[in-house]
Computed example of a mutant assay.
Amino acid sequence: MKVEVGDFVLFHYIGRYENGEVFDTSYRDIAEENGILVEEREYGPIGVTVGAGELIPGVEEALIGMEVGEKKEVVVPPEKGYGMPEEELIVPVPIEQFISAGIEPMKGMYVMTDAGMARIISVEEDTVTLDFNHPLAGKITVFEIEVVEIRKKESS
């Protein structure tokens, strides 16, 4: 039985940068080995409906045609992954917004804003520049995926 669009699929994954460094995984032991373990997170296979846009396109396309127990490695270019960085998602804000909130802004720090998560890319005297691009925007990523379970879509 192969994965088709509309099927609900449970799968494990390991996400790596091109240099092999692991940045995310559904396996607790691999997260631990690579120093990226998040204690509050529940590790295990993730479930998605293929074709529903719940995944980056490169991984979703790779799942189609796979069978339970099958493993595959897929190289995902930015266009099929997290996109290219967009200049309009880099926004200067008055430093006063941080000071009044009791936050000491530092380059590289992530902050939650009304518009979502952003990374501080510079701190000037009067301005803090925020980058709302996904941290993996513009990067080629490599995913190792393993299908654990396939629940076929209901026929209508």
Rank of each mutant, 00 (worst) to 15 (best):
M66W: 13
G108S: 06
K152P: 12
A31Y: 08
V50C: 04
K139G: 04
Q97C: 01
I36F: 02
L37D: 04
K153L: 08
E67I: 07
K2Y: 14
E144P: 01
V59K: 03
G102Y: 15
T129I: 14
E61K: 11
V91L: 09
A118D: 09
I56F: 12
E42A: 00
P135R: 04
I90T: 11
T113H: 13
M1P: 07
T49G: 04
D126C: 07
E146M: 15
L55K: 10
G116A: 12
I64F: 03
I30P: 02
T49R: 07
K139Q: 07
I150S: 04
V38D: 07
I30V: 15
P135G: 02
V111F: 07
R16T: 11
V74N: 13
E42G: 01
D126A: 12
H12R: 05
M84H: 05
D126H: 11
V75E: 06
R16D: 00
R41E: 05
E21Y: 11
N133R: 01
R119Y: 07
F8Q: 10
E73N: 10
V91G: 08
Y17A: 11
A62M: 10
G6V: 05
F143D: 08
I120C: 09
T127A: 07
I56K: 11
K153Q: 12
I99G: 10
Y82G: 10
I103E: 14
G51A: 08
D114R: 09
E144N: 13
F132V: 02
S122V: 07
E61W: 05
V22M: 13
S156P: 00
I30S: 05
R41A: 07
V75I: 13
G81P: 06
E67Y: 13
A101G: 09
P85Y: 08
Y82D: 02
E144F: 00
G81W: 04
Y43S: 01
K152M: 12
V147Q: 05
